[in-house]
Write a protein that binds this DNA or RNA. Structure first.
Lengths: 188, 188, 188, 188
DNA sequence: CAATAAGCGAGACGGTACGTCCAGTCTTCTT
DNA sequence: AAGAAGACTGGACGTACCGTCTCGCTTATTG
């Protein structure tokens, strides 16, 4: 049987990717650069990851706790506020924010990365949120006619609009704004 | 006295960019390729545009009518439905959709392109929408406490969430869903 | 004590080397490729041979009968004709010719292989020929002033000139030409 | 019309190739290394030469005077001695000798280089020698039955046998030996 | 007759170089 | 002056092999 994968190299690679991305930016990040910084052969990267984006995604995922359950206190608005505030702090914070933005950007013209990103990060987040919303509907806290997935797109889309289209960030106040508009409705 | 900019070349360049982008995808699009396809020297491209993204943005803008005023029949919901349906057909349609997605993607790690995109496409669209919302507020059709910009992010964000995060499209029914959720509110 | 060298693997390796060299050419021959073709670990090759050339040389040597004595009928010209014709058929034939040429080529910039090649193939051949020539000198069939090694270079060099410099082969007629020119001399 | 070839770069490239080859040896010579040493992009090498061997061949040819006519004093032996001594000094000397050997070696498994080498260096040399020999035959200095090309292979082959097979050099005394053996003949 | 030491297949590893593509600049000649 | 053509330096791509290094398995003595 063959030699096993070197966890030491894998760690050095993801660490180097994160550091370099912060230093030179995602656009100038290169597999060559990651390998050099990590003290690793390029082949070792290509053996396990298909692209620089995949390396960065792995690095990000290992920094997060994705298996955290969606909060459920019985009050959907409170729970959404809790979760959204946390998600913003993590996904748009200085640690993973820039990398996350860059990955979403790259995914727009890299189908493989897009699939990876959806399967391992965005999809699970959306599913957990949609499920929590379904529960809230059964409890009569959200109108039954609303498609849970559409609710997710409505509430979370506002933040991505800020991040990806306007290039700005969002704070706790914006979370409140979104929840207020979304639950109360825009009508007077 | 200088020779003026050749409109003929400019046209050939933007046309080539759009065609090539559809054929090989934005990631494999290159200034070199555009020049070759357009029968043009590379320098002629670099003289007038800073990057492939800028060329594509120009090409897109010339295909749209951005100076169209936001509809105003006096009923904000009707007007939003009209505008959103049209915007979706244009911005997510097969003609400009893929290019628009790619540009938003590239902008995430290309500040110059991001600025260009915001100044010439996204900004104007948002401003017009926000202004229409302000008018609706004065007419008592939208709660006064709502920040017009936040309203824009809420309503339009839902579509970008679908396009950029989930990689799916949106149809007229989704427009209705979003407007219903947004105006009526999620609460029963 | 340990397991002994696997003759089965050794055979598979030399066989694979010869086959691959014929198929892809010496330049594209690689230790990696030989190992794969032979169904053998790379280490097993590196354990017993220093380079692809050494493997091929071994393969060649095992195909030849080097211990055959130089013919000695008493007539040096007849014996040279016999030996040269045989040598040409072997060393320039389709079986070992291409490999032999490639090895001589590689040896020009690979001192270790050059030494190996000389010690195990070229040297012995030259020595046997020189010895036979010395005998002929004692029998008065060749001028005593001639250095036997120089005679070898003169007579055999003609063939290598054809093979290595001109890239052509030599036939029995050429053997006669060389012997005629060499023994009779060029002068009318 | 396009920019012309940069003679400055070409010079830097051939110079770097020669220097590097002497320093690290032909086997470790690389296009990458030549480019780096010459301060040139790799593409500039690949644009004009197909391989490292071709670069080196060009460098060698530019150092020689190939258009020098074969000497003709009327005495073929004297002329051959003159030419051979000169050829040895050049082709086996410390300046071009190692490179020439390496090129002949590489040519054994690189057909394109072999053709180049023959067309531009070996062929012309052989033709000039064969022509001089033809003249000598007409003057009755060489037997008419001898094929001039075979004479060339006989006389010059001796040197290549020394250089390529035995890895030794040849001196003026060896030239005399070869001419003596060749013209007088080996027979007592 | 178990321990043990080497050979073995497999293949991951840090590296070097390959030959290609493209970026962005510079030069030359044409319009 | 602007344009087409394309050569230039330079950086990165993704691939192929190099020669070394574990792995876990098989085999063959030898204490």
């Amino acid at each position: 049987m063959p030699a096993a994968r070197s966890e030491q190299s894998a760690e050095a690679i993801t660490r180097a990717a994160v550091e370099l991305c912060l230093e030179v930016g995602y656009a100038k990040l290169s597999v060559e650069g990651i390998a050099a910084r990590a003290g690793v052969g390029k082949q070792t990267i290509y053996r396990w990851w298909p692209s620089k984006g995949a390396v960065l995604l792995d690095a990000l995922l290992s920094k997060m706790t994705l298996d955290a359950p969606f909060p459920d206190t019985g009050d959907i608005v409170v729970d959404l506020r809790t979760q959204m505030t946390g998600a913003i702090r993590t996904l748009m914070g200085p640690e993973v924010g820039p990398h996350y933005r860059a990955l979403i950007g790259d995914a727009q013209h890299n189908p493989a990365l897009a699939a990876d990103l959806r399967d391992r990060l965005i999809g699970p987040l959306c599913v957990k949120a949609a499920n929590r919303i379904r529960v809230a509907q059964q409890q009569g806290q959200i109108r039954a006619e609303c498609d849970p997935d559409a609710v997710v797109s409505l509430l979370y889309g506002a933040f991505y609009h800020r991040m990806l289209l306007l290039g700005t960030t969002a704070d706790a106040a914006f979370v409140d704004d979104v929840l207020s508009m979304g639950f109360v409705g825009l009508r007077p």
